[in-house]
Design a protein around this nucleic acid. Structure first.
Length: 416
RNA sequence: GGAGAAGUAGCGAAGUGGCUAAACGCGGCUGACUGUAACUCAGCUCUCUACGAGUUCGGUGGUUCGAAUCCGCCCUUCUCCA
């Protein structure tokens, strides 16, 4: 199985500007390719992983990837299908670029010019309006731009001139990278198709047909239940351990539905066809072991959070799901619950008041309901009366109390 | 600017004077089952000092013993026309 066939098998090819041409190139030459990430936040989230990992695949296959951070395009905003974006401040963008660059470095081997990490602010940041209009704007026909899906969807609700222009900036990126890095391929999610085509069109118009460049999209990861991949109850699943702890990250992956896991292993892991097929058999014959989920969770947690993060995630998982917290030492509990939401309370507070004040539970009515159904635990013991008082006496190290709500929601209450 | 329709709990949607804290569906929470799942089943889902009480049906002012339900004004949304 050659590289291109592997990409197809993994389901990473949706649309290609020139299918046969690209296949030919990838199998016979070492090429330079790029993928852009706009700094809309100071961390990437799990949804970005597919493209970043894809860049890494290209690198492992002998090609040279460029990860492009959109320090300039990020100040404008890629038009969303629904509504106009809020402009983020230049300082915010700067801050976000730093965060994202740091993350990108982890996925690509950039030593010795084997990959590049670039910022389009370096060439777009100081362009004058006149240059923009004369050198690039002239190549874009507004009628064609209006027909593009991303723009067309917005025509009824309205779109600003700013966002309308976004695709031109991204096209300039491709041209710049082609000229300066001999980059001939842009990859992206299927939502980026319009922008990729803008780039290849611009290059053809400026440099003529002999400049042979390609764009290829991969399908966005979809879940069998139709919901969006990458969101958990708490919101986005971020790569930044400060925003989403390694434990939460690991948990998100371990909980992926059976119907989706094989597809995700193909797209998000570096496991071979044989390895994945073995897991597929396991999934059918011994689904309760969830070897497939655990394999993906391990692979990605190691990749994103390193060995330490992975070990921490597994340790916490075992503590909270398998063990009885009463059997654990105070120190083990501290580690295991580092990621649980914690709140401050006073010595002698009523349990009911503490739960409502900390917003762990919305109202006293609901607390009564939960206590009645015996689903509140304090330090591993089920609560059965409404007058329960929390004291330092019963706290671990006289410092904190562990609340368990339902089956797997843990909270830590610290005494002031 | 003109004509019409609509605004009910997180969402959708009943209700057109007292029996309505407001049917039903979705969503959410808890329990049983289980694989930390899916499915299924059961309970709960405005608040509280809780077998009772308080505050709700776009806003506001009325009518009435009594209003989400009737009337006036205002606000918002949608459709059609200019």
């Amino acid at each position: 199985m050659n590289f291109f066939e592997e990409l197809e098998w993994r389901g990473l090819i949706k649309d290609v500007t020139d299918y046969d041409g690209l296949k030919e190139k990838l199998n016979n030459e070492r090429i330079v390719c790029y993928c852009g990430v706009d700094p809309t936040a100071d961390s990437m989230h799990i949804g970005h992983l597919q493209q970043i990992i894809l860049l890494r695949r290209y690198q492992l296959a002998g090609h040279m990837p460029i990860a492009l951070c959109g320090g300039a395009t990020g100040t404008i905003g890629d038009p969303r299908p629904t509504t106009e974006r809020r402009l983020i401040t230049l300082d915010e963008v700067k801050h976000n670029v730093e965060g994202i660059k740091k993350q990108l470095e982890k996925f690509l081997d950039i030593k010795g010019g084997k990959a590049f990490l670039l910022n389009n602010y370096d060439w777009l940041g100081n362009m004058t309006l006149i240059d923009f209009l004369r050198d690039y704007g002239k190549h874009f026909n507004v009628s064609n731009m209006l027909a593009k899906d991303t723009i067309a969807k917005r025509l009824s609700t309205g779109i600003s001139y700013t966002e309308f222009t976004y695709t031109i900036l991204q096209a300039i990126d491709f041209l710049y990278l082609y000229k300066n890095y001999n980059c001939i391929l842009q990859i992206g999610g299927s939502d980026q198709w319009g922008n990729l085509v803008s780039g290849t069109d611009l290059i053809r118009k400026v440099l003529g047909d002999e400049a042979k460049v390609f764009g290829v999209t991969s399908p966005l990861i979809t879940k069998s239940d139709g919901s969006k991949f990458g969101k958990s109850e708490g919101g986005n699943v971020w790569l930044d351990p400060e925003k989403t702890s390694p434990y939460e990250f690991y948990q998100f992956l371990v909980n992926i539905a059976d119907d989706d896991i094989i597809n995700m292993l193909k797209k998000l892991s570096f496991m071979s066809k044989e390895e994945i097929e073995t897991l597929e058999i396991s999934l059918k014959e011994e689904p309760h072991l969830r070897l497939a989920q655990k394999a993906l969770a391990k692979g990605l947690t190691l990749l994103v959070h390193g060995e330490e993060g992975f070990n921490q995630a597994v340790k916490i998982t075992e503590t909270l799901f398998k063990g009885d917290i009463k059997d654990l030492s105070v120190d083990e509990l501290r580690v295991g619950l580092r990621d649980a939401k914690s709140f401050e309370i006073n010595d002698g507070d009523l349990l009911i008041d503490a739960l409502v004040n900390t917003k762990i539970i919305a109202s006293k009515r609901e607390v009564r309901e939960l206590i009645n159904s015996r689903s509140i635990q304090v330090n591993g013991v089920k609560v059965d009366n409404f007058e329960k008082v929390l004291t330092k006496e019963e706290a671990y190290d006289h410092e904190f109390i562990i609340i368990k709500k339902g089956k797997k929601n843990y909270f830590v209450l610290n005494f002031k």
